[in-house]
């Protein structure tokens, strides 16, 4: 066991760091109850055993104490009030881009049976099971599924958001140093689910631009037929790169899977009625 393996405890970006901070705060707060309970329990069960020579007081009728009861209604109320404030603050913070001064990148994520498709509308390229992002720029993931519900989770960058058919879900993440980060589907989708892992590769901006150019030059195009094959083939695939993808395929997928009824989701993908 090695400290680096605790992905959640080794954040590589501001979102995961906020989440870790809240996790640490919550651990400290709950320990305020857990530790005294453990000590009290050990003390009480030792001291008040039923031995004939036990000198500890025995008060079989003593069963009410206003003061004590106020204390133990009060302590958890206080703890939860404090944790509640932190929770509210962070929950609202995480729906905004982590950094306001940098231009965000948008990446469209689709859960398929059983692989992840990433489309880069600004770059016009697509990848499977590998997601490439520039460092220090907020990334807006717009997530959907053309499969049963899944979850998009990259522990070192931040907690997950579901991939749901017919819906466009938004998740802001950001990497603050170059690296390769493990990701996995978060919700069971059937036979091939266990092997739905992927990697997020973060690179400095210049190298990211260079990588985009390389993909554009060297990778094949994703045709409509190829897209349909990806959707319908029930298998895990290796990492794949595409120099282009059928225009509007992401938006079409959302609409066809039920998004046409959802004004909110149509707004997120910027499609008009």
């Amino acid at each position: 066991m090695n400290g680096d393996h605790f992905l959640v405890l080794n954040p590589a970006g501001p979102v995961a760091r906020i989440e870790l901070h809240l996790i640490v705060v919550s651990i400290i707060l709950v320990l305020i109850v857990v530790i005294p309970v453990a000590i009290l329990l050990a003390y009480i069960t030792r001291r008040y055993r039923d031995h004939p020579d036990n000198k500890a007081p025995y008060m079989p009728e003593w069963s009410e104490s206003k003061v004590l009861e106020i204390i133990w209604w009060g302590i958890p109320v206080t703890i939860i009030a404090i944790l509640g404030v932190y929770t509210a603050y962070d929950t609202f913070a995480l729906v905004k881009p982590p950094e306001k001064n940098a231009t965000p990148v948008t990446i469209q994520v689709t859960s398929l049976n059983w692989k992840w498709l990433f489309q880069y509308p600004e770059q016009g390229i697509a990848t499977v099971n590998e997601c490439d992002i520039p460092v220090n720029r907020p990334v807006q993931f717009v997530i959907t599924a053309n499969s049963p519900m899944n979850g998009f989770w990259v522990p070192q960058l931040g907690g997950q958001e579901y991939a749901m058919p017919g819906m466009a879900m938004r998740l802001w993440l950001q990497a603050d140093h170059p690296g390769i980060f493990y990701g996995h589907g978060g919700n069971f989708t059937g036979r091939g689910y266990a092997k739905m892992d992927f990697h997020v590769v973060s690179r400095p901006s210049a190298q990211f631009a260079q990588w985009v150019q390389t993909v554009k030059k060297t990778a094949p195009a994703l045709t409509s037929k190829g897209y349909n094959q990806l959707v319908s083939s029930q298998n895990n695939t290796p990492t794949l790169f595409y120099s282009s993808y059928p225009a509007g395929s992401f938006e079409r997928t959302i609409r066809h899977q039920g998004g046409m009824y959802m004004q909110r989701d149509l707004t997120i993908i910027g499609a008009s009625k």
Binding site: V34, T87, P155, G159, Q160
Partner: peptide, 20 residues
């Protein structure tokens, strides 16, 4: 008590994004 404590941790929604 430990189960309850981790339950409170899970209830802090942004923490849950990581535990879910």
């Amino acid at each position: 008590v430990i189960g309850g404590a981790t339950g409170v941790m899970l209830a802090a929604a942004p923490g849950d994004y990581q535990y879910h």
